[in-house]
């Protein structure tokens, strides 16, 4: 219940809300759809999309409520701190998620691969050489070429690094209360993100059509596409967050002191940046 009036501005607690339970229902729909879909049922795909769409609608309404509360001044400085903690811990959870996939890459490459190729394993795989980016011991993987750092990944690195800079310029601008400058640099950041995604999509097409490098290309393809794919998904999420912030900046939200939505999205963007640097080194260079 919202129960704080001006004399006791302590901690705003929102009143009953239908969005969480609806979100649960829409996610259930999404997951039922997904379960059916991956098992080859066509209706599953539709149900999955309906579920995702409805989930997005719920999130839209929910965040709409939150933004309205924020703009009407209900969020005290203490709530601001709560948001900071929560965003930091959320990003930590994302770090651990990527950690699982980086861990898999490390394990497969540095432990399983040499193992499969060692002397004992000649019993099973007499001809396996244990080269990273090869076709796997059983020869069931079609041969493919691996992806190097040039030119696209390097261009993409530059794009993301630049986007980090533009975002920081935007942040300085908002702190100085320069709304149109903020909007401009935010827009530039989102645009760089979009170009990044464009290149990434191009790189995937190149991989599939020219390198014969696919999701099914053994452990190399698995880790390559899952790591870069999840990263790309996160870039997209980050870009959406920044777009919402941009829209709110243009609508006149935020003040030089109060703009946590901006900062949270910015932290997220920097996190996505850092993940990319990790990818750039261990996926493309090593």
């Amino acid at each position: 219940m919202s129960s704080h009036n001006a004399t006791a501005p302590h901690y705003f607690v929102p009143g009953p809300s239908q969005w969480p339970v609806l979100g649960g229902a829409t996610l259930l729909t999404t997951m039922i759809g997904a379960s059916a879909w991956v098992n080859g049922l066509q209706w599953g795909a539709y149900l999955n999309f309906v579920g995702i769409f409805l989930t997005l609608v719920v999130l839209y309404k929910w965040f709409g409520d939150a933004i309205a509360e924020s703009e009407s001044g209900k969020y005290s400085a203490r709530i601001d701190v709560s948001f900071r903690w929560s965003m930091s811990w959320f990003i930590f959870s994302e770090v651990m998620f990527f950690g699982a996939f980086f861990g898999a890459l490390f394990y497969a490459r540095s432990i399983s691969m040499p193992w499969l190729a060692d002397l004992d394993h000649k019993v099973l795989w007499p001809d396996f050489a244990g080269i990273w980016g090869g076709t796997g011991p059983a020869g069931v993987v079609e041969s493919f070429k691996t992806m190097g750092p040039f030119p696209i990944p390097t261009i993409n690195t530059a794009l993301l690094l630049t986007s980090g800079v533009t975002l920081t310029i935007a942040h300085h601008a908002i702190r100085e209360g320069q709304r149109s400058k903020t909007a401009f640099w935010l827009f530039a950041t989102v645009l760089l993100g979009a170009i990044f995604m464009g290149f990434q999509a191009y790189e995937y097409m190149h991989a599939y059509s020219e390198l014969n490098l696919k999701l099914t290309s053994g452990i190399y393809g698995s880790t390559f596409f899952m790591l870069t794919g999840f990263h790309g998904f996160h870039v997209t999420m980050g870009a959406i967050m920044l777009s919402v912030v941009l829209y709110r900046v243009m609508k006149g939200h935020f003040t030089p002191e109060h703009h946590f939505a901006f900062e949270g999205a910015a932290w997220y963007w920097h996190f996505v940046d850092v993940v990319w640097l990790g990818l750039y080194v261990v996926v493309y260079w090593m």
């Binding site: 193992w115 499969l116 394993h121 019993v123 099973l124 011991p137």
Partner: peptide
């Protein structure tokens, strides 16, 4: 453990 694709001893 007997692990498919791997040998242990």
């Amino acid at each position: 453990d007997a692990i498919p694709g791997f040998v242990r001893d």
